Structure formats: C-alpha cells, structure tokens
Amino acid sequence: MLLTRATEYALLSLDTIRQSEKPIGAEQLANELCIPKSFLAKILQNLARAGILESKKGAQGGFILMKEIDEISVREIIIAAEGKAPAVFDCTQYAATCPNGSIGTCSISPFLATFQRKVDDFLDGLMLGDII
C-alpha cells in the first residue's frame, strides 16, 4: 500500500481547515502549507466531491468541513485523495504475468484478502479526530 503526497496534503489541509473559524481558500492553504496550489486545488475538489469538504463561493469563500472530525474516516480521506482505495497488494497490475493464470487463485490469495479486510477495517475505524 503506497500512500502518496496527496494523502499527506489532504490530512494537513483538513487539520488547517478544522482550525479555521471561517472558510479558507486553496491559495491561502497552499501558501500556509507550502504546497503547490494546482495540486492542492485538485485534492480539495476531490475531498469536496467525497462530501468531506464544502466549497463556498464568493469573496468570503473557501473550504469548510462538511462533517465533524470524529465522523470522517481516514480510509475515506485516502480514497478521496488518491482516487482509489488503499490496497495491500494490487494483483490486477500483475495479471499478465501471474503464474497461476488468473487473479485470486494463488496460494496466498486468502491471506491477502484477510489482510486487506483488516487494513480496511482499521482505516474505517480510524477517524480524523484520532490523528489530529
């Protein structure tokens, strides 16, 4: 499972947004966190599409949290930021070279499925409020 800077920036942004008493814009966040604005804007839009943030328009606009920090799971943040669910092992990228000929039939598939469920359960139970 590889989490990229997108997840890191999402978590840092959410922490800054939760501390703000008013909506905070992408440019201000980018400057405060030393993050490229265009990259951060994409992450913030993904968080808004996922229902984690709300984007307010206008002169006093910016981003605010849509939910309480104890209602936002780290897994949903990762999915929004990365554009996909975190995977312990992504067999699909090796489908053409799988020695067993098909995905999910190798001897370690049951272990990988169990491991993935445990990671998913952990990340679903870990809330933003637990880490900030």
Rank of each mutant, 00 (worst) to 15 (best):
L3C: 05
T7M: 04
L11N: 02
S13E: 06
D15V: 09
D15L: 07
D15W: 07
Q19C: 06
S20E: 12
K22T: 09
A26I: 03
Q28H: 05
Q28G: 00
A30Y: 05
E32W: 10
L33S: 06
L33E: 06
C34T: 13
K42F: 00
I43R: 02
I43F: 01
L47S: 03
R49S: 09
I52W: 08
I52H: 03
L53F: 01
L53H: 02
S55E: 11
A59Q: 10
Q60Y: 09
G61M: 08
F63D: 02
M66A: 15
M66S: 15
E68N: 14
E68R: 14
E68P: 00
I69G: 00
S73H: 07
S73W: 01
V74A: 09
R75D: 00
I78S: 05
I79M: 10
E82P: 02
K84H: 14
P86A: 15
A87G: 02
V88F: 13
V88M: 11
D90G: 09
D90F: 10
D90C: 04
C91W: 05
T92V: 09
T92N: 12
Q93R: 15
Y94R: 13
T97I: 15
T97N: 07
T105M: 12
C106A: 10
I108N: 08
S109T: 14
L112D: 00
A113T: 12
Q116E: 09
Q116G: 03
D121R: 15
F122L: 15
G125Y: 08
L126E: 00
M127L: 15
M127C: 04
L128Q: 04
L128H: 06
D130E: 08
